[in-house]
Design a protein around this nucleic acid. Structure first.
Length: 117
DNA sequence: CAGGTGACTCTTT
DNA sequence: GAAAGAGCCACCT
């Protein structure tokens, strides 16, 4: 990982950078691995800001491998309801990356969950 | 400045 | 085991 920057204080103009940081974290997710919203948020410097990661993906999900970001339950949660088409794309891409998906559409985070080294 | 919202998560019933 | 409620932080109105 790149050097961890002090996120003790977020600059007013750095708020937007926060989203960029989230995208950076998502880009760091290796192929064939998945991370949860909370995981991404925490690595981005927002502990407990899982919703922020979700919002970030909603805004700029088209510029990052959002398909590697899933809910803590290992499934796509409400994404399938809001973007059923996107959910299908996500499943297809993950399957392409050798990520096993349960019959219920859940991913075993114990195996495919990304552990930041 | 204050209130409401949400692609989430955790704890309790 | 599943469902419901509260909590959380950043953004929008």
């Amino acid at each position: 990982m790149a050097s961890n920057r002090q996120a003790t204080r977020a600059d007013a103009s750095g708020v937007a950078a926060l989203y960029q940081r989230i995208y950076a974290v998502i880009r760091t997710i290796p192929r064939g691995r998945v991370a949860t919203y909370g995981q991404v948020a925490e690595l981005a410097g927002i502990p407990g800001g899982a919703r922020i990661s979700a919002a970030a993906l909603k805004v700029g999900g088209g510029q990052v491998p959002w398909h590697r970001v899933v809910g803590k339950r290992g499934m796509f949660g409400r994404i399938a309801i809001l973007d059923p088409v996107g959910a299908a794309t996500q499943r297809a891409r993950l399957t392409r990356e050798r990520v096993a998906i349960d019959d219920r559409g859940a991913i075993d985070l114990r195996v495919f969950g990304w552990l930041p080294i």
